[in-house]
């Protein structure tokens, strides 16, 4: 389910690794948010340039197309960490303990396999647009003002690589939770019981209500 879930922490290596990675993920997600902000600034520049200076922003569309992968990819691991990618939790919501960890392990492993293959696939896509011998290393450029596209294409394997790290960590966490039969598994998003949810919500709302 979307939105915030609770991720438990403790003093273990696993939890430490989780929090270090989370810091990185948060920065990448903020980059994505700033890219949305830059879309807004671009439009203001484009419209005022056209209407007041009779000089439209050259390559407006090209710049938007460069910003979109930043928006679409950079937060992918952050969202996975918090359990923000939507799913149906009817079945897993009813499971507990080792059964739950086993099912979560299987679906997380499936995502891991997909993402490792997609790191390969998106890297190949990047490579086809990249040529050390060419001007600006570019073998693919945007339509209007010929910006090299390889930096934007590189974002996909980079963001997906970080997601693979996150998935590997979650797999480790599910194995650990399964072995120990933990009541409070570390470093994975949990579907919460009502009391925990209320506590989290109070913390959340007091932080940002204006």
């Amino acid at each position: 389910m979307a939105g915030s879930s609770l991720v438990f922490t403790d003093a273990s290596v696993l939890s430490k690794a989780d929090r270090v990675l989370y810091e990185l993920e948060k920065r990448l997600a903020l980059l994505s948010g700033l890219a949305v902000f830059s879309l807004m600034v671009l439009a203001v520049l484009s419209v005022s340039g056209r209407n007041f200076l009779n000089q439209p922003l050259p390559g407006y569309v090209d710049w938007i197309e460069q910003a979109m992968p930043l928006i679409a990819f950079m937060g992918i691991s952050y969202t996975q960490r918090d359990g923000g990618h939507i799913r149906m939790d009817m079945l897993v919501g009813a499971l507990k303990g080792r059964t739950l960890y086993a099912v979560e392990f299987v679906t997380t492993l499936a995502i891991f396999v997909l993402m490792v293959l997609l790191v390969w696939g998106t890297w190949a896509h990047f490579q086809r647009s990249f040529d050390f011998g060419a001007p600006m290393w570019s073998r693919d450029s945007s339509m209007d003002i010929a910006l090299p596209i390889w930096p934007a294409k590189l974002l996909a394997p980079v963001a997906f690589g970080v997601l693979c790290l996150r998935l590997a960590l979650q797999l480790w966490a599910y194995v650990r939770a399964f072995i120990n039969n933990d009541a409070r598994p570390i470093a994975v998003p949990m579907i919460l019981n009502a009391a925990e949810q209320a506590a989290l919500e109070a913390e959340h709302v007091s932080g940002q209500d204006s």
């Binding site: 992968p69 679409a72 696939g121 996909a156």
Partner: peptide, 26 residues
Amino acid sequence: AVKTAGQVPHSKVSSQALSLIPTFIL
């Protein structure tokens, strides 16, 4: 198959039309 699938994420999201979605959310 992997290379064909690997084209999709970048090529589909880098679209001006879709840029309206994050802006409207913002």
